[in-house]
Amino acid sequence: MVLTGMLAEADWETHRPAVFGAAYRILGSVVEAEDVAQEVWLRAAGADLSEVRDLRAWLVTLAARMSYNVLKIRAGTARNLCRALAARTTADRARRFGRGARQHVRCQP
């Protein structure tokens, strides 16, 4: 396939299932996989694709990288929520039962 530098809608519709499938396998969430597929479409529509030899591979690679970024953000958010909950729980226990009753909640790294 010779690309003219722009992503045609027909090309996108051909490769969209592969993009969505890669994102879904990594993320395990239909909603997040749809978000990644939309972001891939937006990036590809604005990119110069004249030097891309295999459009499907390029789109799937982009989807995989974006999905791993989502996982990274998700893990960081979970850690921050756990730390906030742990601090709140520790403070609540200290307030209710006195300083000696502090018990720490552990968050996974």
Rank of each mutant, 00 (worst) to 15 (best):
M1I: 08
M1L: 09
G5T: 04
G5V: 03
L7E: 04
A10G: 09
A10H: 10
R16W: 11
A18D: 05
F20K: 02
G21E: 15
V30F: 08
V31E: 15
E32F: 03
A33N: 12
A33F: 09
E34F: 01
E34R: 13
D35M: 10
D35E: 14
V36K: 00
V36S: 00
A37M: 01
Q38D: 14
E39Q: 14
L42Y: 08
L42T: 14
A44L: 00
G46M: 10
A47D: 14
A47M: 07
A47I: 04
A47P: 06
L49K: 07
V52K: 01
V52D: 01
D54T: 08
L55Y: 12
R56D: 12
R56I: 04
W58C: 06
W58E: 12
W58Y: 15
L62C: 02
L62S: 05
L62T: 11
R65I: 03
Y68V: 14
V70R: 15
L71H: 05
K72P: 00
G76F: 03
G76C: 03
R79N: 04
R79P: 01
R79V: 12
R79H: 03
N80L: 15
L81S: 08
R83L: 15
A84I: 09
L85D: 02
L85Y: 12
A87L: 14
T89F: 06
T89V: 13
T90M: 12
A91N: 11
A91V: 11
D92H: 06
D92C: 02
A94K: 13
R96Y: 05
F97G: 07
F97V: 02
F97C: 09
R99Q: 10
R99F: 07
R102N: 05
R106I: 05
Q108H: 11
